[in-house]
Design a binder for these strands. Structure first.
Lengths: 213, 213
DNA sequence: AAGCGTTTCAAACTTACGTTTTAATTTGAT
DNA sequence: ATCAAATTAAAACGTAAGTTTGAAACGCTT
């Protein structure tokens, strides 16, 4: 009669991902999680140890594959004959995000939202655990961008990447600041292809813009 | 011996602003606030009624002047003889943000961070109270951008504004996604003038980019 | 079927939260 | 100086949080 549910730990991860996105870490209680996951309250501490550890599991389940996919895209570009252009590098990040957004079994677009939430909430997890582990992500992109935008200085390039990745993350996370002031039509209909269509020209133009005198 | 402190309500507002930014709404307790503000626990409920109402007071103390300043910039542009260019409109938003960032008595850059936090936390306050009240902010900017970027369609323009304001808010809020992966030099030294120097060319280039076929 | 490690369950524990209450204190006008 | 109002103070209230506990139920090998 009923589709066989995933096991307890997976159900907890799935529900937690959604709730952490909706209500944040502090705003999500273990009782909300275990109730919606239809598991016992103690199951979280049994399987993950603590609420903190649960959050880390939720986060890492998505981050590791996403980073790996981006690095694979960069590998693919380096292997090609022709030199990469800015658009290629931007797509090397966007494509994995898109794949994530389109696959509900991978949490759909939830993780990018979780990531942006985690970012502004400034978790210990980000400050301590991850920074070191995935620094290769930034270094690879930085190296690639440096080759494609050779006329930009070190500092200028760092800023461009900061701005470009910021805008890309926000686009996929659906963080619309204007919705503060008015019901926005842009974000409510969040079709991944639409995001790319409008995001790509914007971010590429910003990256290749001449530096300020 | 001691500089005369501001009154109780103001001390609560100042401390709350900082703590709400650092720990979020749910993550900030009234006991943290009252302890750091050196006031009695009951003072919050006495002066503001509830934690929710306190948050609204904290938020509105900054938002109202910021919006007013932006609208004044737009008024100034309309009063001028020459037609405005994209850069003028961008600066019409950036200038008040800069003023906010430079004046510690106005909370410095704290409010933009609070705003971005409140955004991802998706507060009732934003969904219900503010949307209606400050819709003029978006409409005025939309009208101005439409005149400056006449070749963009309705939908395209909405996306450009979404992306542009997103990136500007994030730049001032200091939300650096790359810091997830590596200790970023960009944001740690957050000089307002540096922000403008690097932000302005990027966002202007993105706004005026040719639309995707 | 028995035994054993793993998982689930209901219940309780400790702590911290937002809020309320009631009394003490300060303030300001007469 | 006095009195009423406004403010501060200390304590307690009820609720909900994360975590822990010990027994019951389950799954698997023998």
């Amino acid at each position: 009669m009923e589709a066989s549910k995933p096991d307890t730990a997976t159900r907890i991860l799935d529900v937690s991902e959604r709730l952490f996105v909706e209500h944040g870490f502090e705003g999500t209680s273990l009782r909300m999680i275990t109730q919606q996951a239809e598991v016992n309250l103690a199951a979280v501490n049994y399987h993950f140890g603590s609420k903190d550890a649960l959050f880390e599991s939720v986060f890492m389940r998505r981050l590791a594959p996403l980073v790996a996919a981006c690095l694979a895209e960069l590998d693919r570009l380096e292997a090609k004959q022709e030199a990469a252009v800015v658009e290629d590098l931007v797509m090397a990040f966007i494509r994995p995000c898109l794949a994530l957004s389109r696959d509900p079994s991978k949490g759909g677009a939830l993780f990018v939202r979780l990531l942006s939430r985690t970012l502004v909430e400034n978790h210990r997890l980000l400050r301590e655990t991850i920074s070191q582990q995935y620094s290769v992500f930034v270094h690879r992109f930085a190296k690639a961008f440096k080759e494609v935008l050779p006329w930009l200085g070190e500092e200028e390039l760092a800023w461009r990447m900061h701005l470009a990745f910021g805008i890309m993350f926000n686009a996929f996370a659906g963080n619309d600041v204007l919705k503060i002031f008015v019901r926005s039509q842009v974000v409510t209909a969040r079709d991944p292809d639409m995001i790319v269509k409008h995001l790509l020209p914007f971010v590429v133009a910003g990256l290749v813009a001449p530096a300020q005198g």
